[in-house]
Amino acid sequence: MNEHTAGRHAHRGLNRRGFLVTVGATAVGAALATTLPERAGAAAGAFRVPVEDVRHTRTWMAWPDSTSIWGGRLSGVQADIALIARTIAKYEPVVMCANSGSAAKARQMCGATVTVISSVPVDDCWMRDTGPVFRTDGHGGLDAVGLNFNGWGDKQTHARDALVAKRIASYVGVPFTRADLVGEGGAIEQDGAGTLMATRSSLVNRNRNPGVSERQLETAMCEAYGASKVIWFDGVRGQDITDDHVDATSRFLAPGEALVQMPVAADTDAFARDARRQYSTLTASTTATGRAMDVMRLQGPDYNKIRSTNRDFLASYANFYLCNGAVISARFGDRRADEAARTTLQRLYPDRYVEQLDIDRLGTGGGGIHCVTQQQPAA
């Protein structure tokens, strides 16, 4: 699951798929406990997680099939996942992980351009959070790190998803280590040159890392990502299932360059206030090398003008996905804002084609395109 972001409606309950089923923490926690003893601490060495605009070998995705999670929304979410997969497959290979009982449907809906495998079973579709974080060493080496996914703090079932990162690494045939923290890929943004950004609300949280200090988390994050500095935002705690992931509000474009999705002036809820604070924090920050941050604004839509009327809807242009030759983003029905976002992304990535997709069913689940994808960078 994933996301959060700037400019959402006020008066939310448990957002970011707040309608999803919470599974008993005892059973789920036991599933995670079987994997945690394998953790060996991800020694960075020469390996680091590159910025996301590097060339990819493939994109990894996951096929949702749980009516206990999605209820009557499942078919619509599957249609959105298939649309995203088919669109990315025009630019680079896509591998969809599906359970054996739903692999045939995934193949039928995704089409021949998407590879569907059933050897990596999944609980849900949020590959950004469950998949491996791939690292490169600049000399042809590739490995993978697992972030010990625990269902966003035991908020959703994850017995299968807790094993996805390791199983994909095995499928690819690369070394795999476990980070010394519990978290999700959507919780951490990297510039590929030593700087990370993340929200305290998601990671410095007893539902992921009880008894672990912010300083200790910084060390673990930097070891895992091959970085040396973390830019922290306070975030929003307890109002969405992710506890406010960073990747629907702030993104790195390049070393020293970032983008923040800004809410419209009338939006004053917790997420809108947090987005403004993230922008302020970034403009006052420096990179790991001491360079002042160059921070761009990406204007978010007016929630009164988008198609969805669901109060938990995620309308994040910033939750875009970079693939070889393209930027895959969303549009929400605020035509002026949709076109302005397309223009901004085209200006930022002039050598890539900008694709805007209608993914309202996924957005109603509180997620976006970046949330359901995980890149495997070319070594």
Rank of each mutant, 00 (worst) to 15 (best):
G18Q: 02
P37K: 05
G18F: 04
T35C: 03
T26V: 05
L32P: 02
A27M: 02
G29I: 10
R17Y: 06
L20A: 15
G29K: 11
G24T: 08
A40R: 14
L20H: 09
T35N: 10
G41W: 12
P37I: 07
V28E: 15
T34G: 08
G24M: 04
P37S: 06
F19L: 00
V28N: 14
A33V: 05
T35A: 07
G29D: 05
G24D: 12
A43P: 01
R17A: 12
V21C: 07
A33M: 11
N15K: 02
P37W: 06
L32N: 14
V21M: 05
E38P: 00
T26Q: 06
T22S: 15
F19R: 04
T26D: 09
L32W: 05
V28R: 13
G24S: 13
N15I: 01
R39T: 15
A42Y: 09
A43W: 05
L20M: 11
T34W: 01
G29A: 14
L20F: 12
N15P: 00
L14H: 10
A42L: 02
A42Q: 05
G18E: 04
P37H: 04
R39E: 12
G41P: 11
R16T: 04
T26K: 07
R17H: 04
R16C: 05
N15F: 00
T26S: 09
R17V: 01
T34M: 09
L20W: 11
R16D: 12
V21T: 12
G41A: 03
G29Q: 07
A42W: 04
V21Y: 07
G24N: 14
A27H: 02
V23C: 07
G24H: 10
V21E: 07
V21K: 11
A25G: 14
V23A: 14
G29V: 01
G41L: 14
P37R: 04
A42N: 02
A43F: 04
R17D: 05
T35D: 10
T34D: 06
V23D: 14
T22A: 14
A31T: 15
V28H: 01
L14K: 10
R17P: 00
A40Y: 03
G29R: 14
A30W: 09
A42G: 02
L14G: 05
A43C: 03
T35G: 01
G29W: 05
